[in-house]
Simulated scan of single mutants.
Amino acid sequence: MICLDCDDLFATWRQQARWLLSHQIDPSHVGWNTVPDLFATDEHYPAEIGPFQARIPVALIELLESAAQYRGEQRWSLLYEVLWRVSHGDRTAMLAGDRLGSELHRRIKQVRRESHHLHAFLRFVEMPAAAEGPPGPEYVAWHEPAHDILALASEHFIGRMGRSRWLIATPQDGVYYDGTELIHERQCPLEWQQLAQQAHDPQGELWLTYYSHIFNPARLNPKVMQGHLPTRFWKNLPEGALIPGLISDARTGKQRDGQARDIGKRQGKRIGRSV
Rank of each mutant, 00 (worst) to 15 (best):
G268K: 07
E62T: 13
R123L: 00
L83H: 09
K235V: 12
Q16V: 04
R266K: 14
G174L: 01
D8W: 05
L20W: 10
W234Q: 09
R85W: 04
H119N: 11
E144R: 13
T41F: 00
H88T: 08
R71F: 02
T92M: 06
E155N: 15
G204I: 00
R256F: 11
K109C: 03
I271A: 04
A141Q: 07
G162R: 07
Q187R: 12
V224H: 10
G89Q: 11
A40Y: 00
S212L: 00
I247P: 06
E144M: 05
D8H: 11
D262G: 00
K265E: 08
A129F: 07
Q267N: 09
H88I: 08
A146I: 02
T231P: 00
A120R: 13
Q255L: 09
M1G: 07
D98N: 15
L206V: 15
R113D: 14
N33T: 09
Q172T: 09
L150T: 08
G264W: 04
H119P: 06
V35M: 09
A196I: 06
R55I: 03
P244N: 07
S66Q: 13
W32N: 07
A68L: 04
A40P: 04
Y139E: 04
A93I: 11
R266H: 06
A153H: 09
E126V: 12
P217K: 03
E181G: 00
G101R: 10
R75D: 08
H119R: 14
I271C: 03
E65N: 13
P230T: 02
Y176I: 03
F233A: 01
Q110V: 00
C3W: 04
H117G: 04
L78K: 04
Q198W: 03
P46C: 01
G133C: 06
W234E: 10
V30K: 04
G89S: 12
K109D: 12
P244D: 09
H105I: 11
D42T: 12
Y70I: 01
V140N: 05
G272H: 08
M127C: 07
H143E: 10
K269G: 02
V175W: 01
R55C: 01
R266Q: 13
